[in-house]
C-alpha cells in the first residue's frame, strides 16, 4: 500500500492507482468531464487538476492520470487549482452557454458568463473523446474518430462518411457528458 496525503489527511492506495481513484474511493469531490471508469484516462478536460508537492517542487497535475506515490502531498482546492478549474468552466460556458450540463457545472463552481460568451449555442461538444474511446475500447469498433486540429478539431467518422462499422448501439450517446452526441449521432452513424 502507498500512503500519501490529500488536503492534509493521510490516505492509502494500491500501486497503479491514480490520485482520482483514491479520492473517489474516499468520497473526496474532484470534478471531471472526460473521465469514465469504463475507458482509459485521456487527460483532455483538465478539470480534475490538483496540486501535487512531491518534495522537490509543487505543480498542477491531473488527478485522473497521476499515479500515486508515497509521501506526496495533494491539494484538491489550492488557489492554483481553483484558478485552472474556474477558467476551464468559464471557457466551456462561454462556448456553450445554453447547454444544461455545462450550465449546471458552472453553477456548481460559481462561474457566470463573461462578455466573451457566444449567444444561443447549446451544442456542447468539447472533445473529451469519451465517445471515441468508448467506441474503440468498449464496443470494439472504430466508427468514431477525431478530425482536424486546434480550434477546428471535431468528432467525426473516419473519412467523414457515415461509418459502416457503426452498430448503432448508442453507447457514444449514452456516455457523452454534455449531450452533444445526440446532435452528432445521425451524421456519423451508418
Amino acid at each position: 500500500m502507498i500512503t500519501f496525503s490529500i488536503n492534509g489527511q493521510e490516505y492509502e492506495g494500491q500501486e497503479g492507482w491514480t490520485i482520482l481513484d483514491v479520492a473517489r474511493w474516499n468520497g473526496i469531490e474532484i470534478p471531471t468531464l472526460c473521465h469514465h471508469g469504463a475507458v482509459e484516462p485521456y487527460g483532455a478536460c483538465r478539470l480534475c487538476a490538483v496540486e501535487v508537492d512531491d518534495g522537490r517542487r509543487s505543480r498542477v497535475v491531473i488527478s485522473c492520470m497521476y499515479p500515486i506515490k508515497a509521501g506526496i502531498k495533494v491539494q484538491t482546492h489550492s488557489p492554483r487549482v481553483l484558478n485552472v478549474r474556474r477558467w476551464i468552466v468559464q471557457l466551456l460556458l462561454d462556448e456553450s452557454p445554453e447547454a444544461p450540463q455545462i450550465k449546471e457545472l458552472a453553477r456548481s463552481l460559481g462561474v457566470t458568463p463573461s462578455r466573451f460568451q457566444k449567444t444561443g449555442v447549446d451544442f456542447a461538444c468539447h472533445l473529451c473523446g469519451l465517445c471515441v474511446r468508448t467506441c474503440q475500447e468498449v464496443v470494439g469498433v472504430q466508427a468514431l474518430t477525431f478530425g482536424n486540429r486546434g480550434l477546428r478539431k471535431e468528432i467525426t467518422s473516419p473519412f467523414r462518411t457515415a461509418s459502416k462499422d457503426c452498430l448503432g448501439c448508442g453507447s457514444c450517446v449514452y456516455v457523452c457528458p454534455t449531450g452533444a452526441m445526440e446532435q452528432l449521432f445521425s451524421r456519423v452513424a451508418g
Binding site: 483538465r46 466551456l92 472533445l127 486540429r149 486546434g150 480550434l151
Partner: peptide
C-alpha cells in the same frame, strides 16, 4: 494555429 486541440486550456484558453 499549431495547438493540437486536445486539452481545453490550450485550445480555448489561447483563443480567449
Amino acid at each position: 494555429d499549431e495547438s493540437c486541440g486536445k486539452c481545453i486550456p490550450c485550445r480555448l484558453g489561447l483563443k480567449r
